[in-house]
């Protein structure tokens, strides 16, 4: 049994226009020391699925799943109080915006020591010692003095390091990093990713990395979940995914990488992820898919197939007797 196992997770939001399904039948399985990446564009439900796991969604969200197990515990049925003993300790999460994710009214030392005191306890002196040790571990120079700094006195990169220190403080077994580098400078991005990778290996954590950057995925992850419009469209190990993508969306994402560009213009996927009001019938990706057929436009592919497509790709070409007529069309 895996350390963390999620089966058929769905999250629905009640909106003025009816129910909106932000996450639809997502699976996730991760073991000690493993690194899984969840990839997809903005609005594909990557963050929402992980926030659902953490129990951090607002009350308007309706969460259903066949299974949501962590280390033998059923996260679906436990009380809020029991969940609070797990999150921040065994499962913790790093967010996208380091500048707004730390409380401006408290010193970073206080914010780090608070989480340790909550879960592990200890005297003031022990807490302080551990906080200094953690700040050193995430590469913050002169940690003793930084302990008394407020978030606004530090850069975004430094704040993200503090955030990481805070979230690994109780030696979590699963660390979820939700686009941890999106808000940072490119040079800092590499440093933070490197740090996360190191920590993951050193502490033997399982790590879920949410990103929309395929480059990051290639460098760090072992297994990749590709998500589109709340659905998991493909799941593969990283090598297979990059060499032989099976879903047209994955294929298009990889083609959109600047380093794979063959023409002068950067390739892109036309259109945007469908929202609440413009959900297509059939396969959700069909309006943007260059291989879409009438079948794609009318019938949704089976959610539980390995690749969420009627015509999974092989060597960049659709299989399963794809009519082939529209291959040349709709491609810009």
């Amino acid at each position: 049994m895996s350390l963390l196992e999620i089966r058929n997770l769905s999250v629905e939001f009640e909106t003025a226009h009816g129910l909106f399904r932000a996450v639809d039948g997502v699976d996730l399985e991760i073991d000690q020391g493993e690194m899984v990446a969840i990839v997809g564009e903005s609005g594909s439900g990557k963050s929402v699925s992980m926030l659902a796991l953490m129990g951090l969604l607002p009350w308007t969200a309706k969460i259903t799943a066949d299974r949501m197990n962590f280390d033998g515990q059923d996260l679906l049925t436990i009380s809020q109080k029991e969940r609070r003993k797990i999150i921040g300790k065994d499962i913790s999460m790093i967010f996208q915006e380091p500048m707004t994710s730390l409380n401006p009214c408290f010193t970073v030392g206080y914010q780090i020591m608070e989480v340790i005191r909550e879960h592990l306890g200890g005297t003031k002196k022990e807490l302080k010692k551990r906080a200094i040790e953690l700040l050193g571990l995430v590469g913050i120079p002169s940690p003793e003095t930084r302990l008394r700094a407020f978030p606004h006195q530090m850069s975004g990169g430094m704040n993200q390091r503090v955030m990481i220190a805070m979230m690994i403080a109780c030696n979590p077994r699963v660390l979820i990093a939700d686009e941890p580098t999106t808000a940072l400078d490119v040079t800092i991005q590499a440093q933070i990713l490197e740090l996360l990778g190191e920590l993951q290996k050193k502490q033997g954590m399982a790590m879920v990395l949410i990103t929309h950057d395929m480059g990051v995925v290639a460098e760090t992850a072992e297994v990749v979940n590709v998500q589109y419009a709340g659905q998991q469209v493909e799941r593969q190990d990283v090598k297979g995914l990059f060499n032989a993508p099976r879903h047209p969306y994955t294929h298009a994402l990889l083609n959109a990488l600047p380093e794979r560009a063959t023409s002068k213009r950067l390739p892109s996927i036309p259109g945007v992820v469908p929202g609440l009001l413009d959900r297509p019938t059939g396969c959700l990706f069909n309006p943007r898919c260059k291989f879409a057929t009438d079948k794609c436009r009318s019938d949704a592919p089976d959610l539980h197939s390995k690749v969420l497509c009627h015509y999974p790709l092989e060597d960049g070409m659709p299989t399963n007797n794809h009519p082939g007529v529209s291959v040349a069309e709709g491609n810009s």
Partner: peptide, 23 residues
């Protein structure tokens, strides 16, 4: 965001609302 962070730390509702948010 920092209130969500406080929740993510597994703090009690009292601490999240009465300390992190109220301050």
């Amino acid at each position: 965001d920092y209130v969500r962070t406080a929740r993510a730390k597994g703090l009690s509702s009292f601490r999240v609302i009465g300390i992190h948010a109220l301050r």
